[in-house]
Computed example of a mutant assay.
Amino acid sequence: MSNPESKSITRELQSHAAILGGFVSLLWIIEIVDVFLFRGALNAYGVRPRSIQGLEGIIFMPFLHGSFAHLAANTLPFVTFGWLIMLRETRDFFIVSAITILVSGFGVWLTGAPNSVHIGASGLIFGYFGFLLLRGYFERSFTSILVSLIVGFFYGSLIWGVLPSQPGVSWQGHFFGFAGGILAAQLLGRQKRQIN
């Protein structure tokens, strides 16, 4: 590997680390501020189904968590899946995130239980999971198929999270996040096939 190529890869990995590190730092800072300054009051800004005021929660939902344990459980899969998406192209991470946030949020807003509030980045994580799992099918390149197979092998059991299973867990967020990831895989896969 030539020196310029090595430097380019190093810069790319540093960029990935900065983006993911920035997102994770933001999530933890928000949770620390919410717990110690607002006593959890910020969680009221999550998605409140079929409430006009609850629509703002579509944007805020991924950044709010019920506890440090909730956030800690979301941190590692967020970084792992986020980085796997970035490996192909950094901009894919932002596109997949935006589509997933919107689809997951609107899905929860339309179908969530009345008088409930939905928070957490797990919808985003399920979107990343759906994207990585189906990207190979839509893109049909060797690399994307290989990543889809690896993700399916190691994380395939996550699929059960899209079903109602545990009280207090927003399966709607998981389900529509997963659907958003599949939509992103279809859109980006079609775009990449046209380019190639």
Rank of each mutant, 00 (worst) to 15 (best):
A18P: 00
I19Q: 07
L20C: 12
L20T: 08
G22N: 09
G22Y: 10
F23R: 03
V24S: 10
S25H: 00
L26T: 15
L26W: 09
I29A: 12
I30E: 01
V33C: 07
V33G: 00
V35E: 13
F36A: 04
F36M: 06
L37D: 04
R39S: 13
R39K: 13
G40W: 09
A41M: 10
L42P: 05
N43L: 12
N43M: 13
A44V: 12
G46M: 09
V47L: 05
V47N: 02
R48K: 15
P49M: 07
R50L: 13
S51F: 04
Q53T: 11
G54H: 00
L55T: 03
L55S: 01
E56Q: 12
I58M: 02
I58K: 00
I58Y: 02
I58S: 01
I58C: 00
I59T: 08
M61Y: 13
M61H: 13
P62A: 10
P62Q: 06
P62E: 06
S67T: 15
S67D: 13
S67F: 14
L71W: 06
L71E: 09
A72T: 13
A72I: 14
T75L: 02
L76H: 03
F78K: 01
F78N: 01
V79F: 07
F81N: 02
F81D: 01
G82C: 10
G82S: 08
W83I: 11
L84F: 14
L84D: 05
I85S: 04
I85W: 04
I85D: 03
R88V: 09
T90K: 15
R91I: 10
D92C: 03
F93V: 02
V96G: 01
V96T: 03
I99S: 00
T100S: 11
V103D: 09
V103F: 07
V103C: 12
S104M: 11
S104E: 07
S104G: 12
G105Q: 11
G105L: 09
G105D: 12
F106T: 10
G107A: 12
V108W: 03
W109A: 03
W109N: 03
T111I: 03
A113P: 00
P114H: 08
P114I: 06
V117A: 06
V117R: 04
I119V: 15
I119G: 01
S122H: 15
S122P: 01
L124T: 11
I125P: 06
I125K: 10
I125F: 07
F126V: 00
F126E: 04
F126P: 02
Y128C: 02
Y128W: 10
F129W: 04
F129N: 02
L132K: 07
L134Y: 14
L134E: 05
Y137P: 02
F138M: 05
E139N: 11
E139Y: 07
R140W: 07
R140A: 15
S141I: 01
S141D: 15
S141F: 06
S141G: 15
F142N: 12
F142E: 15
T143G: 00
S144Q: 14
S144F: 08
I145D: 10
I145G: 02
L146V: 13
V147K: 09
V147S: 07
S148M: 06
L149K: 14
L149A: 14
L149S: 12
L149E: 13
L149R: 13
I150N: 01
I150G: 00
G152S: 11
G152N: 10
G156N: 09
G156H: 11
G156S: 11
S157C: 02
L158K: 07
